[in-house]
């Protein structure tokens, strides 16, 4: 059994146009390692949604991807405003994205629900005023 490989990304909060680059990069690496297309896509979508969330709500953050032979763990950590009511945030269509973000086609309230839908487990730790850490696992 091979030990895990970690990939680390700083997600820039100031640059909206570069949001999503880390997930594209991870996708390329997973392909090189021969993961199944469906697994790659699930990781890519979950990570993309998380990246966008960090850019919209938390002025960026850090993304860590740990690749093991049987699962892929994505950890997204930010020092943003935190989520006051996680249960509410998990509901489809619920969004606190500002109007300027919505005008770009984001903020449909599908970010967290999609992250849950495309992964095998989703854990959220959040403290208002301190930040949020999202940990997602995709089983291979």
């Amino acid at each position: 059994m091979t030990e895990g490989i970690r990939f680390h990304y700083d997600v820039d909060g100031d640059n909206f146009t570069s949001a999503g680059e880390a997930s594209v990069n991870v996708k390329k690496k997973l392909r090189q390692m021969g993961f199944d297309p469906d697994v790659i896509r699930r990781v890519s979508i979950a990570m993309y949604e998380g990246e966008i969330n960090m850019v919209i709500h938390a002025d960026g953050g850090e993304a860590d991807v740990e690749v093991l032979s049987d699962k892929i763990i994505i950890t997204l950590a930010d020092k943003g405003p935190g989520i006051p009511d996680i249960e509410q945030a998990m509901q489809e269509g619920f969004s606190t994205a500002p109007d300027n973000i919505r005008s770009l086609g984001f903020g449909a309230g599908m970010g967290l629900p999609n992250m849950k839908r495309y992964t095998d487990s989703l854990e959220i730790e959040s403290e208002v005023g301190v930040g949020t850490t999202v940990r997602m696992t995709v089983n291979v």
């Binding site: 091979t2 030990e3 490989i5 390329k28 392909r31 090189q32 390692m33 021969g34 690749v67 032979s69």
Partner: peptide
Amino acid sequence: RPVTMLAGDKSAAMKKMMDIE
């Protein structure tokens, strides 16, 4: 056509990926 795959076997590919990083 997984043309960018580093090795035929996943654990060998992962090992190569680690070296590449």
